[in-house]
Nucleic acid binder design. Structure first.
Lengths: 160, 160
DNA sequence: CAGTAGTTGACTGAATTACTCGGAAATTAG
DNA sequence: CTAATTTCCGAGTAATTCAGTCAACTACTG
């Protein structure tokens, strides 16, 4: 599990797709417009997303991309692993050839850490993100204060 | 918050340091030996760790690095943010110049996601990792005495 | 069957990562 | 003091990944 801007672009694009789900195929050109992501870069990303069977493509005029599954069956973890192939952080590569007596110290560490992060991201589906987005929209329209108690906001600055 | 092998190397090295805490300074050469990380790369990483005040250095013969705080006050998040400087994943950079009516769609998304991951990694301290490591050792060995002599062990014992 | 909307994949410059090299500064041992 | 040890610092580099471009290829429409 690696967290880079690449995966974030992919999730953003998929979220855009999910928000327009049910209105026929969505073109990459449109996503590029709305999300300010380069069209050619999107093409690359959606190639991987298609191979991971997260989206389906419709060619020709009126074509574009649609979700291959329903939005609640696609998690952020799915998307990230599709475009951001994993790196192996353990120097032994899972084998037991680490020196000293604490074998694979880092192995267990990162396995656990990865599992936790992956677990969390697996629970966050496109559907929940769409719902959150809609909630925010109606928040803005009607009552822009005091209506986002769903997720605890931990960092005050967000400067990560 | 970005997750790359760089941060993982740093955490691995810090964990090595924590496991030897109390026996005087630990040299980078030793960490390099044990964890199979390039010495020069470690120097680079520990430069940042020192500037982030997570470790303290002692120069000269018998010198090395020690933890600047107790192990339970250093979290994995501290280490990663020290060596892996953050990227801004939102294309608007926190400003409100996103188009359409859903402004900063990705901004809130990644702020929340980052916050959650960061929150988790903030709870994982070096101390808990050391404890985990010890628990694993005693699982394997069934009886691991903790009766280490107080004598500072500085010499590398010529194990190479 | 030609034209066009749209995908597909090969290719590329820039940035980042992981790492090396060479030396300088500080500290201690002898 | 001198020599040895170890951190500190900056420049440099190969490999990889990121982000983006370009030129085809495919399928649908008229």
């Amino acid at each position: 599990m690696r967290l880079t801007t690449k995966g974030r672009f992919a999730v953003t694009a998929m979220l855009d797709l999910a928000l327009r789900h049910g209105n026929g195929p969505v073109t990459l050109a449109g996503i590029s417009e709305r999300q300010s992501i380069s069209l050619s870069y999107l093409e690359q990303l959606f190639g991987k997303l298609r191979r991971a069977e997260l989206v389906e493509s419709v060619r020709g005029p009126g074509g574009g991309y649609t979700l291959a599954k329903s939005a609640d069956q696609i998690s952020v973890a799915d998307i990230i692993t599709a475009v951001d192939e994993p790196v192996d952080a353990t120097q032994c590569g899972g084998r037991e050839n680490c020196h000293d007596n604490h074998r694979c110290m880092t192995h267990d560490l990162w396995t656990n850490l990865n599992a936790t992060i992956f677990d969390y991201l697996s629970k966050v589906t496109l559907f929940s993100l769409v719902a959150e987005q809609h909630a925010k929209d109606s928040n803005v329209m009607q009552d822009k204060r005091e209506a986002t108690p769903q997720r605890a906001r931990v960092t005050p600055t967000g400067a990560m």
